[in-house]
């Protein structure tokens, strides 16, 4: 049973930590975005786009969790009874996206919040703000990639 518990812990960390990163990031970006919208409601679309960017970490975490659940058969079908050592492996494999998601979500939110200034002052150039914000996301993407590859390598049952 310990094996399954450890795998669930891995899934929980992936969703929880990456989700926390996104929640903080989207929150920070949303606060500055509201200021821009209060001045000029027509910029809502651009503001929403920037605010949504730090939201992807949460999705990546969720994705990793789904892969883990699928691996151990918790998503319908029969639950695979795995060794504790396999459980540990799955738990550690979830860490790249969990940690990278947490930190990159927060900092991407900060960059997005700063980029709201571009939307306010030079709306024609908001694409540059989006790219600046997406630079931070790179590390969440790499974290996800590492998690996926690691999970793929772990043999269950």
């Amino acid at each position: 049973m310990l094996g399954i518990a450890l795998a669930i812990c891995g899934a929980a960390l992936a969703v929880g930590l990456a989700g926390t990163g996104s929640a903080l990031g989207v929150g920070i970006a949303g606060q500055s975005g509201s200021g821009v919208v209060s001045e000029d409601p027509e910029k809502f679309g651009k503001v929403l786009l920037l605010e949504a960017l730090p939201g992807t970490q949460g999705i990546y975490g969720f994705l990793a969790a789904i892969m883990i659940l699928q691996k151990v058969g918790l998503l319908g079908g029969e639950v695979v009874q795995i060794e504790p050592s396999i459980g540990w492996q799955i738990l550690f494999a979830s860490l790249p996206i969990a940690i990278a998601g947490l930190s990159s979500g927060i900092f991407q939110g900060k960059v997005s919040a700063a980029a709201m200034g571009i939307v306010a002052k030079k709306p024609g150039e908001s694409g540059k703000g989006i790219i600046l914000s997406a630079m931070v996301e790179t590390y969440a993407v790499l974290g996800l990639l590492a998690t996926i590859l690691l999970l793929n390598g772990i043999k269950v049952g």
């Binding site: 999705i59 790179t138 993407v141 790499l142 996800l144 990639l145």
Partner: peptide, 8 residues
């Protein structure tokens, strides 16, 4: 990153 995004 292209692989990760595609898988997602």
């Amino acid at each position: 990153r292209l692989l990760a995004l595609g898988l997602a």
